[in-house]
Design a protein around this nucleic acid. Structure first.
Lengths: 210, 210, 210, 210
DNA sequence: GATGAATGAGGCTTCATTCAT
DNA sequence: GATGAATGAAGCCTCATTCAT
């Protein structure tokens, strides 16, 4: 919230890092995952840095060794989530499938990601808390993916696997519906994420009519 | 010695009130509406009581004259929203329409409500901040409406206006999709809420397939 | 979400503490002593946390590092005072003295304690401000000491060093009289606490009659 | 605490009053008595003006009609208490009794007063909260009475009804002991205030020795 | 004479963050 | 590389008090 130069930090993470040992990345992931779980469960503001340090079993300064800020933690979680989503999109795009096939392919992966530790946090925690800069980066990432989905829909309309409809609206309805899944999904329940995704896709493809 | 029981306040609102003149209700609504707008725009935690009092043009104690708490403001906004939703559901249920017709009827109203000042706040702000008791009441309200939708779906399946599908999943997908509308909807844009609702319903009814 | 249970804090002080280095105890005592002086001088409610932090030369959060609450400060002061009183009583009970000798022994120490920084605060500040739980603990401590005094009186009546009289009333009169001493006693005045105690005891033993 | 001109108010109460109806004095007493009970029971700071108005069944502005201030309420209670004490002292001084007889006479009345509604408040509530001016007046009142007691003691020493001892210390011990009575005294218990006073006086006169 | 509504000022508490060791 | 201790800033809330009606 008092962004001095967050950009520097973010860039640093992918640039000339200051001599970080081999365990660094593993520990960083461990911390981020723990934080993601807590943020998703309790909410970002309801999870104090104190609580993080206690529940993660590390001292507060350690947290500041792995993240610039409290919200940098959230930013990093978002980056990881977006990376996963981008990879999923990439795989879908490369798949030898019809438009609707790619849609199904992507949203299955999307559901799995959004029900994972990182994804749940990404889905639940409002990005309003992070710096404008980081938020912009995040939004850009999302937008790229949404654009890709619209393109897939258009593609499906070309190959006649998807009906004529507004790609904008369809994309929004799809993301809206799928984003809400982690809100009620319980790991280890009757269905796993993959199955839920299948049902949802079928619903969207078939429609409720008749 | 401080907060004994939050619930007492909520109950008080419908119980033995400490003498309230006319005008109270109007001012209360004015304050709640202003707060709802700010909460929806900036986020609950990002909107301090100070900010509320400044932007609403009242002193801080006034807020505490109309609400027990900062989160009671949110609770009251939720109650108003739920009341509107319940009324909408009631109208839909009473309408002389097929299942799909009732669905369309309800979700049109739903969209309008969720795009209103109160509804946007209700849609955006996580109820994690409110007391367990109030949250339970809120959840119960939502669940009643969700159950009613599932019933309407079943009804539609009986009257053959809705295809065979899991009412649970369909209901969740519908709410997920519609809940996300206020996240991008802009008042005064190309479409009004009613029109967006139409498009969405068509999408859901027709399906993306073929 | 705010104050769940005050008692947890008190218990924590003797339980699983969050890692406290040496120096902690000394600083804690320093803060408590300063607070005790201010509370005794100005009154508990008249001494704001702001004032405490200013006069003690520490920032406000530091106070909350050493105490849960404003009233936990008072509670801790009470615990220290009670510990001193218990120790004094223990010494008096073990002394090889007649009943009246033990009485004299205890109330001399009592006076010294009640005229000390901690004792004055303990004597002056009404425990009405602290949580029911802490107040109960405090009262229990007092009652144990009062019971011990009654026992000493009975003992003195057995060994004929104390006249027949109601131990309950005698004990109450004694504590009442001695508790009031710090209200007028000035350190460095004509008499020191020990001497005042002597005079009081003589008065009580000899009586005003004849 | 923000004494503008409390003196004016106090004086006004005994001077040219602004046309107050006949019921004024009765209602004033009723309010003061109720406040005294609440202050004694809950403490001055723990009793908000809101609570006063609720429990006394009058609106807040009414309280400000009968008292300048919250602490003026306390001041008035103090004045009433002091008036009672002064009257009691006056009666004791005029009685045709030995020194010790006057002592007994006064402290019996003193106990009754201090166990009454007004007296309990006077005994329990620290005058630290009232304006310097009012506190001075109050202290002066107390001091006059204490001086009178010392004089009675001297008188008793002259008429050989009281033993040689320091009148200062004796007076302080007496007031200390008697002031504490309302702290444990319960109306309607085994003893009434008069009887408690008798026992205490006997204790003080006879002494604990032998 | 009474009250619903309003307020300035200040209270207590906690948060994210840093630094000396 | 780690931590106990510290802090500036800000948060929510409540109090005694007053006025327009």
């Amino acid at each position: 919230m008092k962004k001095l130069d967050k950009g520097a930090a973010a860039k640093e993470r992918e640039g000339a890092k200051p001599a970080r040992g081999p365990g660094f990345e593993a520990k960083r992931m461990e911390i981020l995952r723990g934080a993601a779980i807590l943020f998703a469960e309790n909410g970002y503001h309801e999870t104090s840095v104190n609580m993080l340090s206690e529940k993660l079993g590390v001292s507060k300064p350690v947290l500041y060794y792995y993240a610039e800020n409290k919200d940098d933690i959230l930013v990093q979680i978002g980056q990881i989530s977006l990376d996963m989503l981008r990879a999923a999109m990439s795989r879908a795009q490369k798949a030898q499938l019809s438009g609707v096939g790619k849609l199904r392919h992507f949203f299955t992966a999307y559901t799995e990601i959004m029900c994972s530790d990182f994804g749940r946090c990404f889905a639940f925690v409002d990005q309003k808390v992070v710096s404008a800069e980081a938020r912009a980066e995040n939004s850009a990432g999302r937008r790229v993916i949404e654009a890709a989905i619209r393109e897939i829909i258009v593609e499906g309309q070309s190959d006649h696997s998807i009906a004529q409809c507004s790609p904008e609206f369809a994309s929004r309805a799809l993301f809206g519906a799928f984003n809400a899944i982690p809100r009620w999904f319980k790991e280890g329940g009757e269905f796993d994420a993959r199955e839920v995704a299948e049902v949802y896709i079928d619903l969207f493809v078939t429609g409720l009519g008749r």
